[in-house]
Design a protein around this nucleic acid. Sequence first.
DNA 1: GTGGTCTAGACCACT
DNA 2: GTGGTCTAGACCACG
Lengths: 119, 119, 119, 119
Amino acid sequence: MDFNNQKPIFLQIYDLILERILNHELIENSRIASVREMASAMLVNPNTVQRAYSELQAKGILIQQRGIGYFIAPEARILALNIRKDEFIRVQLPILLHQMQTLGISWEEIQLLSSNPAL
Amino acid sequence: MDFNNQKPIFLQIYDLILERILNHELIENSRIASVREMASAMLVNPNTVQRAYSELQAKGILIQQRGIGYFIAPEARILALNIRKDEFIRVQLPILLHQMQTLGISWEEIQLLSSNPAL
Amino acid sequence: MDFNNQKPIFLQIYDLILERILNHELIENSRIASVREMASAMLVNPNTVQRAYSELQAKGILIQQRGIGYFIAPEARILALNIRKDEFIRVQLPILLHQMQTLGISWEEIQLLSSNPAL
Amino acid sequence: MDFNNQKPIFLQIYDLILERILNHELIENSRIASVREMASAMLVNPNTVQRAYSELQAKGILIQQRGIGYFIAPEARILALNIRKDEFIRVQLPILLHQMQTLGISWEEIQLLSSNPAL
DNA sequence: GTGGTCTAGACCACT
DNA sequence: GTGGTCTAGACCACG
């Protein structure tokens, strides 16, 4: 967690969970840490975690079981992939292309820069 | 101007001016519209334009001549290019690479997607 | 049982039993499954079933015979009908009427929609 | 506002605004009271109003203009109507039909009850 | 124990 | 002034 980031903490948590699902660190159908557990693990207020969980539930990534906790949805990974991929194509790719054009950078240059170990 | 965007308006103006300099729509050494002119043209609060101009001045893109107005710096275009390129390499490229990895997208796929006319 | 529903599980059980009495699936004066039996049949915490039974007992639908179990009250069906009908007229009908007014839906429209086989 | 209601306050506010748009009490394109104004008018915490506004924004009913406030979206009324109508057909109508069946109530009876002035 | 909501009060960026 | 986020702490219903 980066508290000095401009990105809201609840979104950082949201992204972190998405990432962990993609990484297979969080397994479908398994239970995820309770709101309170996650909050104390991340040194964050439970409300903040709650908000991240709610958004994930709204997207179908998490499923709440009353009085028990949140679970990773059976189809969470594919959903997460689609959400991320969709956002990538819809938002980030156009920006990338636009920048390449105005900055006059070619695909060759980018791939060259990408092989820089410092990244 | 997209006022329903999450990007601050002053940053949108900032980017717009940078863009216009790169496009040769704004010529080095020429005068740029006054804060008030720009503000009324964009239906925006003058404070907002002021902030964009100030940031551009801090980066050396604009030069203020007291009592006269703001001018495009002689070396504005090359500066603008460097600012953008630097930010691209330092910030955006690493994110891009990370996403490609977690989403399992290859350069070939990206270039394929990029040729989509909808973008 | 729909555990991903916003309706509390104990209420779902409560309604289910009422429904079965109205359907003649549960017969007056007969014994209903014990709390533990019902709980394990429904994969639910016994506390949850207990609460449903208690509410039904409070309304006179179930009768507890200590050490033996719960029984469907002799007049359970008529009671259930009245409870439901009363709640319908007191609570649901006014809401329905209000919605019809603000949404501009007429009785004819509703009856038309109702004949939709998808419902 | 009914603080002793089981329905969350933020949802009550959400519904109230929807209702006012349908009633033409809130006009499209006009500004709605600021979060703080609404909060003090309703004797409620600003966070609670904030949440209601956010949900309305997510549905396209409200539009935020940075630093200025929230506005009723141009197409707010039609959107509100659709949201409500959709929910009515998807959720409430099936329940109504089901109840009519189990309670043995006919359309004639309902319309008779509906003309009761006490409602 | 679980999550859901609310308040009070704070700090921030933006207009 | 505006909204957005966060914390701390409380209370509630549910299992």
